[in-house]
Simulated scan of single mutants.
Amino acid sequence: MSAHESIPRSTWIFPALAALLYAAIVATHYEYAASSIAILFALVLLVILFGTVFAAVHHAEVIAHRIGEPYGTLLLTLAVTIIEVALIANMMLGHREVPTLARDTVFAVVMIVCNGLVGLCIFVGGLHYKEQDVQVSGASLYLSVLFTIATITLILPNYTLTAPGPVFSEAQLEFASVVTLLLYGVFVYTQTVRHRDYFVNRADGGVDSASLSSGMLALSGALLLVSLLAVVLLSKKFSLVVEATSAAIGAPPAFAGVAVALLILLPESVAAISAARKDNLQKSINLALGSSLATIGLTVPAVAIAACVLDKQLILGLPQQNIVELVLTFALSALTFGTGRTNILFGLVHMMVFAVFLFLVFVP
């Protein structure tokens, strides 16, 4: 059986289409501008980009299934974070500066993941199994690091005095980036080495290794790299499409952050919901909380470095309304995972908080 017959066709067709589309853009020197052709281009770009993101996550899942938990979910979150950093950097540091985009995207990821995705996974799992278990020790580590990094990067800039406004001074930004990377690095060490058992479903009995040939593993690894590279290269055109769409519908500035977050999180969300339906809520929580933690732990330092190198302004401090939503999410998450057992009511409450967040984006 050939390699192409062993994997879904879409997982190698979309990366190939993405590479061809980028080559065509470069060869024709195409510049996106409002027109009927631009609308067609935008539709083609979005379809190929979504397909390529799904392909990247599929190949990351194949590799993750081979290497087992918790390395598998860590690989998935890192792959998604690479895509996110590329999209944010291209949009924030492009021809039209958007200094709040990193903040809006990171905040949107936290709200989508910790309320929308977590709520939906718990709700779906509760409908099928009434109650599901999750490791309290693992969830507590996720939440403690996530709450700390989110407070440092998204709330604290509003209350520092060295630089006016909701921004860090250069020294403060560098220090916050180091602290953020250190916390995330120690968390990854804890997750993968020191306390692996905190992040594995006890019913699974540890590593979930699949019988995958070395050739197929190498193919998935190569296609994962191609998919990630294709998304990074096409992200600049995607940023132009988002900007044009926002202007056309009169959307608020935060809409761009939500759009980027939804594109990034969609395939990972499918994997998390599927795990909840299979009574593996632990994997769902690993994917959900892991992606939000990686988003803040890696995206903020990466964008901060780019902003410092290119001398761009980076606004991180959240408005008061968003701070209230973030604090509510912190408190609710602590209550949800505090007992280690979940049900549909916990899921519904999280989903309603997400609905409030989404509504207030358009009606602040």
Rank of each mutant, 00 (worst) to 15 (best):
Y129I: 10
L212T: 14
I122S: 13
G68I: 01
G338A: 06
A261M: 01
I344M: 14
G125M: 13
L358G: 00
P99M: 06
I39G: 12
F187V: 03
V136L: 11
A230L: 03
L314W: 02
T162D: 13
E325H: 15
L328D: 10
S36W: 14
F255V: 04
L154S: 03
V179M: 09
A64K: 05
V193L: 09
A334K: 04
P319V: 02
P99W: 05
F346A: 09
T52V: 02
G72L: 02
L310F: 10
A302S: 07
N115F: 11
M216I: 07
L127H: 13
V226Q: 05
T148Y: 07
P8M: 00
A203D: 12
G347A: 11
E268M: 14
I122F: 12
T73D: 15
L358I: 06
T245F: 11
A79C: 07
E84F: 00
A86P: 00
T153A: 09
T180V: 05
G338E: 05
M91F: 07
D204I: 14
V44Q: 10
H65I: 07
C114N: 11
L76A: 12
A56N: 00
A18T: 01
V260P: 02
T160P: 10
A302M: 00
L225A: 09
Y22G: 13
S211E: 15
L143N: 06
L45N: 02
S235D: 03
P166S: 08
H59D: 02
R9S: 12
S35Y: 10
S2K: 10
E170Y: 14
H65F: 12
R66V: 06
S292A: 09
Y129E: 12
V226R: 04
L49H: 06
L281K: 08
L360P: 01
R9P: 06
N286M: 12
A19Y: 04
A56E: 02
L223I: 00
M92S: 05
F41E: 04
P8G: 04
A42E: 10
A176F: 04
I249D: 11
P70Q: 06
S246Y: 07
